[in-house]
Nucleic acid binder design. Structure first.
Length: 1123
RNA sequence: GCUCGAGUGGCGGAAUUGGUAGACGCGCUGGAUUCAAAAUCCAGUUCUUUCGGGAGUGUGGGUUCGAUUCCCACCUCGAGUACCA
């Protein structure tokens, strides 16, 4: 019986489907294991051989785990919402649902051919209403939640409302919009319903806001930052502009720190973790306020403490009394302007708590000099309130609410007395806030730079500078975002004429504007420290601004000095002589004391825009009442995507859903109704945007656990049983998209008690890309020529295609020219005259490299010229002249590129399965190289694994009949088997699939050499091979007389006793270079080995009479003779 | 620029608690079989050589009895990211 892969593979694929072999149970005695692939977007092009790589790896692991006695969940589905289907719908008018359905069918057929052990009963599709019902449901949960920083988790919005009702918002420590007005409980109650809604919206985890978005006019939609590559849309390469729109956003920034922390707990590739870390972009530093000159408020008399005194203070701060601790716990988490400090100095007095920005001091009563203190504090502009220990311990809530009251209604006007003195000098005062990671270099500030778009620019610019500034702004606004990004070399800017005041020295600092400062990062303004930052340095040099040096023993004549460690600060008042870390802390401390700044952590991570102006996505479960968004009740989900006539945006610029005629919410009937009913009082317009591509993929791994549950995302029991993905395999391109958003949603769902773990995937592996090996032919396009009188260019009429290695002589070229009827560029047929000219006429030959379809090229890089000519895509080459090598073959040149249709290097897995079989495809994809690595595909290599399978088959057969012997295996045979078990097990556990394929080859080669056909060897061997080549393994398994699928068999157990050796072939090295080997018994002692080796004739020959200085012997490993 | 990763035959790659560099496969060369081809089987295949041997894992140093493996500097390639204050 011949090995017939087509029959065998068909047979077993059918068997698996009919017997539901890989259906996972939600209850089992066995330990669970969840293996997941990133589900595919079903594109119209179908699969190429690169796609299944990760699926094969995960399938091998899943099958292996089944052999190892695990209850394995290995599902698959489709991420079936997306732009390509919509683009196709716009072009053809076909409904995206229809094309998506067709594409899925193709995908499924292709996947099935490879023989995956997916549990298809759990398939999910993100575009199915039964699925996106839960996407909408999660959206509602996010809307109904806020992030409580004190608890460091998301909580229900009703909790927040209760707090507002009771004490207003001043005690709330939430992640929310930056500038929220504070209000008391009374004020809250006085708000209208709409006002309350507007306030709550500022706290919700998904919220509407006017955001500047990346608008792509060609696609008629908003793109996420990661959908833009080099300033144009990733899909289609259309230009992108910035535009303000009202959009749904996700408050992912609330989770920035936890997303960072979580990385420590998961086994993901370091590069992927690094890119998430960079993406989140945490920087620790300070916000610093600079007063614009004219406002002389900063002349407060300030008593500074030495660093030593400050250290003592720090200690004091850590040893608080019970009452002190109680109160501190209540007020410590206030942020921004309401932030409190404990054990602080004001003047020479030590106060218990102080809120610098609100000029409020809170103290425990009973201090000696209370009257003096109060007088001094009031004089300094502070309000003081005092409590007794008992008050705090007995009713801290009351104390806190008094403090809140004092914050909101300050009694003393801080600078009243001083304002009188300075009022003549200033009409108006401004502050410039900057974020800096280097507050320690604050004494190196010699100018400030604002982004040209900064709102203060117009207000502070002096009349004298007005023209220059306006000219600069209009010049930069003409440059597109892209130009600005691309061109980092040109230094440009303008002086505003205004000055800021240094918070410590009081010096006047010129304020400039410059486009190297980005409006949308930080505050859109920087304090420039030219000695420590290269951009500031370049700017200062260019505009001849002072560059003060504040580093000890550092030369800054050539470039800025950005090094932090190992440099001491100098010329910096109280910071002089300190190293970076201490200087940083002290600078922040002093800034806070002055009220000129505070320590701040800044993240690069922006809140994620969640609205898309597209049709083919999840509709929002949202309608608008009086302009405020309202959630549709959970029990009416899903809100199904409406039918539209056109998939384009409407003529008045509304998203495609604006074309729907049935898209209004009947709040009484609780259903979607015709837009005509909008006249009714109880019918409201529905949201026209849809959700982005990442919505559906951010929780699908949970849905697989219980995919048909109509009442929950998944039942508590199932979630509790499967918990998380144990192994997740997919591409690294999702590092800052899907993988970040999915972690964010998982953490949110965890906070809400919906899922049991806050990281969804324990281990993740990125499979590398399989690259195509493109084939090229050289096409002669034309010749440049030159004579005494004229020169010009001939274009070829009949294409001339030249084999890769062939070199042509001038004579040959002239002959070709004649044959091809070359035409003069201008159109005159002059080739006859040309031929009359002498040799040496042709100056150069213009060669074009043309991709040829790899289908027409064999393994020796020879092109099938006839096939190539006849291909419908190559009509222009039908009559082309082909110049072959001397042996009449035509060779192509090769290059490794990304696999893509346009490069004609796509290899279809169907063709491979047809010719070599799925088992060969699986083995070969693994054999190509390490899973994580990018590697080129070369179909010719597949013959190696294909003949391996034939050899394997032969082991179980005598000529054409199946035949295995019952005889006891020999020691050698057992050794081969157990060596293989050990290596394969180690390799699978470490995901080194390529080396286990070679281990199989070695085993089969050795067993063939031993002529082994013993059942005791071949039966376990079939199990070892089965994760990789499941079809042939099943067939052999059933030929061996087994009734059940091989997937139910236990993995063979390795026994070390079979590998014990009695002797070893020692390498004998001289000075570390291996020269010869010798067989020695492993029983020999070191001395005996040395004796034997030294007596050996080759040793003597190597030494040539010298006496070795030293002989190193590692028993069982090596002998090294030195000398 | 920054961050990360990688450099080993003609090609894909193997070998790291430091211990025989090039496993396994492709390709290539020669042979067997065949009328011939495919398939199959056998032998060879890092370079160099005066056939004793010598050199060799991007380059240059270092540690070591011994380095593809560890350390330092540099070069090249790839990926990500970018005026992030």
């Amino acid at each position: 019986m011949q090995y017939n892969h087509i029959e065998i593979e068909k047979k077993w694929q059918k068997y698996w489907e009919e017997n539901q072999t890989f259906k996972a149970s939600n209850t089992s005695e066995k330990p669970k294991y969840y293996v997941l692939d990133m589900f595919p977007y079903p594109s119209g092009a179908g699969l190429h051989v690169g796609h299944p790589l990760g699926y094969i790896a995960s399938d091998i692991y899943a099958r292996y785990k089944r052999h190892k006695g695990f209850n394995v969940l290995h599902p698959q589905g489709y991420d079936s919402f997306g732009l390509p289907a919509e683009q196709y719908a716009i072009q053809t008018g076909q409904h995206p649902a229809k094309t998506t359905e067709e594409n899925i069918k193709t995908y499924r057929r292709q996947l099935d051919r490879v023989g995956f052990s997916f549990d298809w009963s759990r398939e999910v599709r993100t575009s199915n209403p039964e699925y996106y019902k839960w996407t909408q449901w999660i959206f509602i949960q996010l809307f109904n939640s806020w992030y409580n920083k004190d608890a460091d988790k998301a909580e229900d919005i009703s909790v927040l409302e209760k707090i507002f009702k009771k004490e207003g918002n001043t005690t709330v420590n939430a992640v929310c919009e930056d500038e929220i007005k504070s209000f008391s409980a009374e004020e809250w109650k006085a708000f209208s319903k709409a006002e309350q809604e507007a306030v709550l919206l500022q706290y919700r985890l998904t919220f509407l806001s006017d955001t500047e978005v990346n608008w792509c006019p060609a696609l008629g939609t908003v793109l996420a930052n990661d959908e833009i590559v080099n300033g144009v849309s990733e899909r289609g390469g259309h230009p992108v502009v910035r535009k303000k729109m009202t959009q749904w956003s996700m408050r992912i920034s609330a989770y920035a720190q936890r997303l960072l922390d979580g990385l420590e707990t998961i086994d993901w590739p370091q590069p992927l973790k690094d890119s998430q870390t960079n993406w989140i972009g945490k920087s620790v530093g300070a916000m610093v306020s600079f007063d614009v000159a004219g406002d002389l408020e900063n002349t407060t008399s300030e008593v500074k403490l030495s660093y030593k005194e400050l250290e003592a203070l720090k200690e004091l701060r850590q040893n608080l009394s019970k009452a002190e601790t109680t109160l501190w716990n209540e007020i410590k988490n206030k942020k921004g302007a309401s932030k409190f400090r404990k054990k602080y100095t004001v003047g020479t007095f030590l106060v218990d708590y102080v809120c610098l920005a609100k000029n409020l001091i809170v103290e425990f009563s009973g201090k000696e000099d209370e009257a003096v203190r109060t007088a001094f504090f009031n004089n300094e502009g502070f309000n003081v309130i005092r409590f007794t220990n008992e008050e705090v311990i007995q009713n801290v809530v009351k104390v806190v609410s008094e403090i809140n009251f004092a914050i909101q209604f300050p009694k003393v006007q801080k600078t009243e007395s001083k304002k009188k003195i300075t009022s003549s000098a200033v009409e108006k005062s401004f502050k410039i806030d900057v974020f800096t990671t280097r507050p320690d270099t604050i004494f190196g500030v010699s100018f400030m730079t604002l982004a040209p778009e900064h709102e203060l620019v117009s207000k502070i610019t002096t009349d004298a500078q007005k023209a220059a500034v306006e000219a600069y702004i209009s010049a930069t606004s003409k440059r597109s975002e892209r130009d600005r990004m691309a061109d980092v070399k040109t230094i440009s800017g303008a002086f505003t004429g205004a000055y800021a005041l240094h918070p410590f020295s009081g010096k006047q600092i010129p304020i400039w504007i410059g486009d190297y400062v980005l409006a949308n990062y930080g505050t859109g303004a920087v304090m420039a420290v030219p000695c420590g930052d290269q951009r500031d340095y370049d700017f200062a040099k260019h505009f001849d601004i002072d560059i003060p040096n504040i580093f000890e023993n550092v030369d800054i004549s050539e470039a800025a000095h950005a090094d932090k460690d190992g440099t001491k600060i100098a010329n910096s008042d109280f910071l002089s002589g300190l190293k970076y870390k201490k200087a940083l802390k002290l600078a922040i401390f002093e800034l806070e004391k002055k009220g000129a700044g505070y320590g701040k952590i800044n993240y690069r991570l922006r809140d994620a825009v969640f609205s898309r102006q597209r049709y083919w996505g999840e509709p929002f479960p949202v309608y608008y009442k009086d302009g405020m968004p309202q959630m549709i009740d959970e029990k009416h989900l899903p809100i199904v995507l409406p039918e539209v006539e056109k998939y384009l945006p409407t003529e008045d610029g509304k998203p495609p859903l604006g074309n729907a005629t049935e898209w209004a919410w009947d709040s009484r009937g609780k259903k979607v109704v015709s837009n005509e009913k909008l006249k009714n009082k109880t019918v409201y317009p529905l949201e026209l945007n849809t959700m982005p591509g990442w919505a559906g993929s951010s929780y699908y791994f949970n849905r697989y656990m219980d995919p048909h549950n109509e009442n929950e995302i998944a039942s508590k029991e199932n979630l509790e049983y499967w918990k998380e993905v144990d192994l997740y395999i997919g591409g690294s391109e999702h590092a800052t998209g899907h993988l970040l958003y999915a972690r964010f949603w998982q953490k949110f769902l965890f906070d809400k008690g919906i899922v049991p773990v806050d990281e969804f995937a324990k281990k993740l592996i990125n499979q590398g890309m399989i690259l195509g090996t493109s084939a090229f032919v050289n096409v002669i396009n034309g010749f440049a020529y030159k004579t005494e009188n004229e020169s010009g260019f001939w274009r070829i009429k009949t294409p001339i295609v030249v084999s890769d290695k062939k070199e042509l002589t001038q004579k040959e070229i002239l002959a070709l020219l004649k044959k091809s009827k070359a035409k003069l560029e201008k159109g005159q047929d002059k080739y006859a005259e040309l031929l009359k000219l002498k040799d040496g006429l042709i100056v150069s030959v213009e060669l074009l490299k043309k991709h040829v379809n790899v289908m027409f090229v064999n393994s020796s890089d020879e092109l099938d010229v006839q096939e190539f000519r006849n291909d419908s895509l190559n009509v222009e080459y039908k009559k082309a002249i082909f110049i072959t090598e001397s042996d009449d073959t035509f060779k192509v040149s090769r290059e490794v590129e990304k696999m893509s249709k346009s490069k004609y290097n796509v290899v279809n897995p169907d063709a491979i399965c047809e010719e070599y079989g799925a088992d060969s495809l699986r083995l070969f994809e693994m054999f190509l190289g390490p899973l994580e690595q990018a590697k080129p595909w070369k179909t010719s290599g597949i013959s190696g694994v294909s003949s391996f399978l034939k050899k394997l088959w032969k082991l179980y057969h005598n000529e054409d009949t199946f035949e295995v012997s019952k005889e006891k295996p020999t020691a050698d045979e057992l050794k081969v088997l157990h060596k293989t078990i050990k290596k394969v097990e180690e390799d699978i556990e470490s995901f080194s699939f390529n080396t286990s394929v070679s281990t199989f080859m070695i085993a089969v080669n050795e067993l063939t050499a031993l002529k082994c056909n013993k059942r005791a060897i071949l039966e376990p061997l079939a199990i070892l091979v089965s994760p990789y080549a499941p079809h042939i393994a099943e067939e052999l398994w059933s030929l061996l007389g087994n009734k059940d699928s091989i997937s139910t068999a236990d993995f063979p157990v390795f026994e070390a006793s079979h590998l014990v050796e009695s002797s070893k072939t020692y390498p004998v090295s001289f000075n570390g270079k291996m020269r010869f080997t010798m067989d020695l018994s492993l029983d020999l002692s070191k001395d005996e080995i040395e004796e034997t080796v030294m007596a050996h004739e080759k040793t003597q020959a190597q030494l040539q009479g010298r006496t070795p200085k030293k002989v190193i012997i590692v028993p069982g490993k090596i002998i090294n003779i030195v000398g």
